[in-house]
Design a protein around this nucleic acid. Structure first.
Length: 492
RNA sequence: GCCCCCAUCGUCUAGCGGCCCAGGACUCCGCCCUUUCAAGGCGGCAAUCGCGGGUUCGAAUCCCGCUGGGGGCACCA
């Protein structure tokens, strides 16, 4: 019997990093990358480094950076070092470029944009990889002449030919890249600033990163970065390229798929724990059964070697289920806090004025069991914050059988006016009793009109709790008001 | 066009040569809980393991080809 090909795992304290570029909010894919790196750091007693790759001055913004840090914190992913910004490490890169120059690993390329494009076009036409190679061995005289003309070169990496670079990927196994397929990539722009492949490689080296866990979209950059690191006389870290996260259309998850960033999920009323859980389960599983993990369990059980190689579609419905279950399992006071935080954060409380927070707090037990996500609070409990106001749908329903509606609401009214105590159980008892008295009417037929009479909504917090919550006077008032409106229809 | 990767129910997945004519979860559909909408409980539909060849006594599991999907090919990251 063959030995299962156990893929290696991280052993010993790992130094890992999360290195987003601050050009937008933290996307779901990035969040999962951050989570996996964080888990590796925590489970090995290692270090989680945060680094902002902001070498693109045009697209990087402080707002985006702040949002990424905020979202990471919201997810509970704390970093041990950083945040470092590549924009503040220029000297490090210039020094590295200097060393590459001294080692003869890079050369100044004076080809014009047109020439470069022509090279690519020619290669394509020839059914070859569209790689660019500058003239590697210009004479000092020629260089001097070009410089005198005011030409400023980019610095390209002289990819060794022939040759190949092999990644021993922790997830994918051995992946080889033929150097003929790798162009002489630019390492320093004509203004002297470093490009991504230079900066990332140098940082991973300088920061002593032991394991690079990132999305598969980076895999073709990896040989370039390995080349840079080796040219600098060092050995590259171990790499692990994770499968991408897809939208329902199987394309890479993006904005147009709806909630695609951590911020979107947060504003949509998901809580960090289930989001983390869902993220962990995208491309990773512990066994064939377990679907819920505490953070500690995640730290203990996560293994890069069990990360899947194939991409996964992100399913918001499933997240909703996890979210709902999580909220139902929360201690009441924690749930209340989470709810109020959310309503405050989204401006819901402010819009509703004084007393809104108090009302929301008191109502939290009524919605706890019924929510999938916090953003559904209003459709359940919105009626608490306003005078009786009929949703068109709900009113239509009452109107469809005016006589029956009046009977149901009237029947309920008689009982709630007289029930000795107004606790949910007492209310329930008398309404149950009334239901029996009314004979063939079903619970639904009896209760639905009353729900609408009280809340103006077809879907709401539970009827008995809701009645008790507003108190006898208000309940009776609302029942009567509805009855009055129905009576108008009846006589007409 | 070139390079790289991937391929089990609609979706997320288990599965590492016999335990699998494939297990779990979500969705969907029934039924129960006469507290309705939800939630919860129970049950059901759903993959000839992309296709075709091998290897083997035996393959979802190994090999080859094909097809399909994804990613990458910037003085972006």
């Amino acid at each position: 019997m063959a030995v299962p090909d156990e893929r290696p795992d991280v052993s010993g304290p790992a130094r890992v990093r999360f290195a987003p570029s601050p050009t937008g909010s933290l996307h779901v894919g990035g969040a999962r990358t951050a989570l996996f790196n964080w888990l590796v750091a925590r489970q090995t007693g290692g270090t989680f480094v945060l680094r902002l790759e902001d070498t693109d001055r045009e697209r990087s913004t402080p707002e985006s950076e702040a949002e990424i840090l905020r979202a990471l914190t919201w997810l509970g992913l704390d970093w041990d070092e950083g945040p470092f910004r590549q924009s503040e490490r220029d000297a490090v890169y210039r020094d590295a470029i200097e060393r590459l120059r001294a080692a003869g690993a890079v050369y100044p390329a004076y080809e014009t944009e047109e020439e470069v494009e022509a090279q690519r076009a020619a290669a394509r036409a020839d059914r070859r990889a569209p790689v660019v190679r500058g003239l590697r061995d210009r004479s000092p005289e020629e260089i001097a002449r070009l410089e005198a003309e005011g030409r400023r070169p980019v610095w390209r990496f002289a990819v060794p030919l022939p040759g190949e670079t092999v990644i021993d990927d922790m997830i994918r196994g051995r992946v080889a890249f033929d150097h003929a397929q790798i162009e002489d990539f630019v390492v320093a722009r004509s203004d002297g600033t470093p490009t991504y492949n230079l900066a990332a490689a140098v940082d991973d080296l300088e920061m002593g990163i032991s394991h690079v866990v990132r999305g598969e979209d980076h895999i073709s950059n990896t040989p370039k970065q390995m080349l840079v690191i080796r040219a600098l006389g060092a050995e590259p870290p171990v790499y692990a390229h994770m499968p991408l996260i897809l939208g329902p259309d199987k394309k890479r998850l993006s904005k147009r798929h709806g909630a695609a960033s951590v911020e979107d999920l947060e504003m949509d009323g998901f809580l960090p724990q289930p989001v983390r859980n869902a993220l962990a389960l995208l491309g990773w599983s512990y066994d064939d059964k377990t679907t819920t993990f505490t953070l500690d369990e995640l730290i203990e059980r996560f293994r890069i070697s069990r990360v899947s190689k194939s991409p996964a579609v992100f399913d918001l419905t499933k997240l909703g289920v996890m979210n709902g279950r999580f909220m139902r399992s929360m201690p009441p006071d924690e749930f209340e806090e989470a709810l109020v935080d959310y309503l405050r954060k989204t401006g819901y409380l402010d819009e509703r004025g004084g007393g809104a927070e108090e009302l929301a707090r008191r109502s939290s037990p009524l919605v706890k069991r019924k929510l999938t996500k916090l953003s559904e609070y209003d459709q359940l409990a919105g009626w608490l914050f306003r005078p009786l106001e009929m949703e068109p749908d709900a009113w239509d329903l009452l109107q469809s059988d005016v006589k029956h509606s009046i009977q149901a609401i009237g029947g309920g009214l008689g009982r709630i006016e007289t029930v000795p105590t107004f606790e949910p159980d007492a209310v329930k008892e008398v309404l149950q009793d009334q239901l029996h008295i009314m004979g063939e009417t079903s619970a639904r037929e009896f209760l639905e009109p009353q729900r609408i009479a009280l809340t103006g909504q077809r879907v709401s917090t539970g009827l008995y709790e809701s009645l008790s919550f507003v108190g006898r006077d208000e309940a009776v008032r609302r029942y009567r008001e509805t009855l009055g409106r129905l009576a108008e229809l009846w006589t007409r």
